[in-house]
Design a protein around this nucleic acid. Structure first.
Length: 270
DNA sequence: TGTCCTTTGAAGGCG
DNA sequence: CGCCTTCAAAGGACA
């Protein structure tokens, strides 16, 4: 609710123009599951880091260039160019999915030049809840909030992968169609639908996810997925492993049958 | 109140 | 290199 409002505000504030032709003419998508063949995107006026990403000559996968960067302040000086550029890819997707609909893509310190700094939704308190907003905090004393800040170190969430982006977009549709609310059941449906998508359709989400990872790396150069390990309390190892042997999961079943994890649908689990 | 379920993909660690 | 584990989202179910 609040997030949607903020994202809409961002859309209005950023009023990013699509890069020339990007919205109207989706770029040809690379063959899926082949990072090396992903197209190098021409991204002028970006930070050196992103220029490295987009260099047409070396084409490392994002993971290859995730060398630990020197920590920089969270507030990236000026990413407006980046946003206006990368948002161009959004022309390939319904605008319900945009950089601004995903928390980890929000600016850390608010819109540059905007008086009301909006916190980066990728940064959440350890509770995982993001709902406590500035006007709520104003009810507390400064000393209290200061102590709270120090006690609770914020968590930077992982960037969403392609399937997560797809889920985020399609969840509401599935809920409406199937009148389901339970996420586990919805996710099963979404998993099947994901596999039913064409390569071209999936490629849009892979490309979005790739850009999201790049932006995440630029916003949080020193961040590692490992940072969030152990922050969720999980079931005992034994039980977890037991569930991993469950042949009912398409992913696990594909692994068992030696099928391509991303392209081959596991027949027995259909 | 906190964890589990359920999905796919990314990333890190280990042998 | 391949395998395993964890975590991203989501919200109902359950302890």
């Amino acid at each position: 609710m609040y997030k949607d409002t903020v994202y809409s505000a961002f859309n209005l504030l950023m009023h990013y123009p699509p890069p020339s032709g990007a919205g109207q003419h989706p770029q040809p998508q690379p063959p899926l599951h082949n990072k090396a063949s992903q197209p190098a995107h021409s991204v002028p006026q970006l930070s050196p880091l992103y220029e490295h990403f987009s260099s047409p000559h070396p084409t490392p996968a994002p993971a290859d260039i995730s060398q630990k960067q020197v920590h920089r302040p969270l507030q990236t000086p000026d990413l407006s160019g980046f946003y206006s550029l990368t948002s161009g890819s959004m022309g390939q997707l319904p605008h319900t999915v945009s950089w601004f609909t995903h928390p980890s893509l929000m600016l850390g310190s608010g819109v540059p030049g905007h008086p009301a700094a909006i916190p980066h939704p990728a940064i959440v308190p350890p509770s995982g809840k993001q709902e406590l907003q500035p006007y709520d905090r104003s009810l507390k004393t400064q000393a209290e909030s200061k102590a709270e800040k120090e006690a609770k170190k914020p968590t930077i969430k992982k960037p969403l992968n392609a399937f997560m982006l797809y889920m985020k977009e399609m969840r509401a549709k599935v809920i409406a169609e199937c009148t389901l609310k339970e996420s586990a059941a919805i996710n099963q449906i979404l998993g099947r639908r994901w596999h039913a998508l064409s390569r071209e359709e999936q490629a849009k989400y892979y490309e979005l996810a790739r850009k999201e990872r790049q932006l995440h790396m630029q916003l949080y150069p020193g961040w590692s997925a490992r940072d969030n390990y152990g922050k969720k309390k999980r079931r005992s190892r034994e039980k977890h492993q037991e569930s991993n042997t469950d042949p009912g999961s398409p992913k696990k079943c594909r692994a068992r049958f030696g099928l391509n994890q991303q392209t081959d649908w596991c027949g027995p689990c259909r």
